[in-house]
Structures are given as C-alpha cells and as structure tokens.
C-alpha cells in the first residue's frame, strides 16, 4: 500500500471540504472492508483518506410512519438485527444476513456497501473499469467473462454491480441521500447507479466530494417482498445471480410489481418487462416462469456467460414464488 494522508472530520461539512473535486485524489473511508483491499492491491492509490466514522450524524436507524431511515455508517450486522427491519422489511433483513460473513458484516457499512466497487477480476487486477490492452482491444470481450454482465453490456462496461443489498432496497423503493459542496440531494436508489462510458467515470452518480449520508425506505407493510440469490458456495462467495421482488396485490392478483436483478448488469437491473408480464396476474409456477423469461428476453450473453441467463431466470422465478408464498418472513 502506498502512503497517504489520513483525516478524521467530525462533521459532514468538514468531510466534504476535505474531499477533492476529482477522482483519484481522495477517498471516503468507512468500514474499509472494500477500500483497503483495493489500496493493498494498488487498484486505488488515494493521496488522502477521509475517515467518516467520527461523524455522529451518519449513524442510527429510525422507523416511523414515513418509513425507515438508515444512517450511512450503520453496519450490515446492526441493520440485519434491527427489530423494525426484521418485521417490516424481511426481504432486506434476509439479504443482509446472506451477505459476506459475520466479521465483515460487523465492519461493513451500508453506505460502503452501496458504494463498493465492482468485483470484476480485470478491475481488481488493475486493468481498469473498462479494461483494454494497449492496442485498444477490450479484454473482457476477448477474455474470460464468465462472471460478467448479460444485460446492458453493449457499451464498454461489462462488470456487474456488486451489492446484493441494492436490488432489494430498490425493490422497496429506497432513496439515497447525498451531501456535497453544493448541498444536499436525494435520488431514487436506482438512479444512483450509472453505466460509465469512459475510464474517468465511476459507476455511481456520486461526485468525488460528495458523501452518502443516509438511505430512506418508504413503509412496505403492504408489500409481499422476497430476495433470492444463487451462489455456488454456501458462504463467502459472490452470487452468480440475484433477484429481489416486491409485489402489491389486489386480492390474489398482482396490482403492481417491482422486479430487480443483481449481478446481471453494470447497475442493479429493474425489469419493466417482468413487471408488465406480472400485471393483474396471480402468481403461479407458470406466471413466474413467464415473468422470468420476460426479464431476460433482452439478455445478451458474452462468450463465456450464457449460463448466467438461465441462472437469472431461475432467481427471478424463485423470488416471485417465494414472495407469493409469504416472502422472506
């Protein structure tokens, strides 16, 4: 790891003022479970780390009629154990418990989870987010893309969005709040994820001198939600496909649905096709299967990842059946 300056502001405003206006100079340091690995591997080499863990405003979980508010520094273990989360957002609680390992969940913050960098092995080996060789050849197209995107992969970005929490939060219609030199802003979580087109861009709608302050989730007691992951290993492994769904029912038929897939595209992927296919349907093997097929209709496999299309279909189908049969609870 290269040497760097380390600062520990105690207010959001101080933190923002210590962050540089362009990427590469500074990084926000929360739990460090992702950032330190990237620095040790020399993928990132910031000149200054801004430790935000001393900022009290970024802590805390509250629940009221408006819904859930989670401070960016809340760690995944804490959030998974929160009684309100377990009761009112069971699919989120389940996604949290399936993530990483107990040790990591006790360090990893929600803000860091949503901002974690892609697991793409080209990126992690220092070839960049949109890896090319010196002749301009796209390494992922030519190379081993077994873990890469099957949707929204026609641009140079082929990595998959790594958070397994983001899809379920999006299914629950979460919003993310940011603070920077120009003040505060709030956006639907799905809008926070963007597909970079050049190597100087990142995969988040986050300015280099902005921080994530909190995540808010509207009440969801009227929703049937579920989260389903496909991982080869039982623990400590990256998923091959993730699906999160939230259904609002009218009697036994779907009034509205949200179907979000993870590990299929450079961003958490909302499938309008699946949502349409479900509209006014009751959930059965058959309709779940059809919605899953619709979700992947536009998938385009790379040379080594056609199996992921099948896995994503299975994840969507199983998430729907799980939601219909009572969800995560």
């Amino acid at each position: 790891m290269r040497s760097f300056e380390y600062v520990s502001p105690t207010t959001k405003a101080q933190a923002v003022s210590l962050l540089a206006g362009n990427w590469g100079q500074t990084e926000v340091f929360a739990g460090g479970t992702d950032l330190l690995a990237l620095m040790k591997d020399d993928v990132l080499a910031p000149k200054r780390l801004v430790n935000i863990k001393q900022i009290k405003d970024l802590q805390g979980v509250t629940y009221n009629a408006q819904g859930l508010r989670v401070g960016a520094l809340t760690n995944l273990g804490e959030l998974a154990d929160d009684a309100n989360v377990k009761k009112n957002y069971p699919a989120l609680a389940e996604a949290l418990i399936e993530a990483a390992s107990p040790q990591i969940r006790n360090m990893a913050t929600l803000g860091g989870n949503l901002c974690q960098r892609p697991r793409c092995w080209y990126f992690r080996n220092g070839f960049g987010l949109l890896p090319k060789d010196e002749t301009g050849k796209e390494l992922i197209i030519e190379g081993d893309n077994r873990y890469h995107a099957i949707l929204a992969n026609d641009g140079p970005a082929k990595f998959v969005s790594p958070s397994t929490i983001a899809p379920v939060l999006i299914a629950y219609a979460a919003k993310i709040r940011l603070e920077g030199p120009k003040g505060k802003r709030e956006l639907p979580l799905e809008k926070f994820y963007v597909v970079p087109k050049t190597e100087t861009e990142r995969e988040h709608d986050l300015q280099p001198n902005e921080i994530v302050t909190e995540v808010v989730v509207p009440p969801a007691t009227d929703a049937k939600a579920a989260h389903y992951e496909i991982r080869q290993k039982e623990a400590f492994d990256w998923p091959l496909a993730v699906a999160a769904v939230a259904l609002r029912m009218n009697g036994s038929n779907v009034q509205s649905a949200r179907v979000v897939m993870g590990y299929v595209a450079p961003v958490p992927w909302i499938s309008m096709e699946a949502e349409q296919a479900l509209s006014s349907q009751n959930i059965s093997e058959d309709t779940a299967q059809r919605a899953a097929a619709a979700a992947l209709r536009n998938a385009k496999a790379l040379s080594h990842n056609s199996y992921k299309v099948q896995l994503a279909r299975v994840a969507v189908k199983r998430a729907l059946l799980k939601a219909a049969s009572g969800g995560a609870a």
């Binding site: 092995w121 080209y122 080996n125 070839f127 060789d133 050849k137 390494l139 030519e142 190379g143 081993d144």
Partner: peptide, 9 residues
C-alpha cells in the same frame, strides 16, 4: 488465465 494479457485472473 487471461488470453490477452497472459496473466492469472
């Protein structure tokens, strides 16, 4: 192994 760079992925 990555065919283009010859490095272990």
């Amino acid at each position: 192994m990555d065919p283009t760079t010859g490095r272990m992925l």
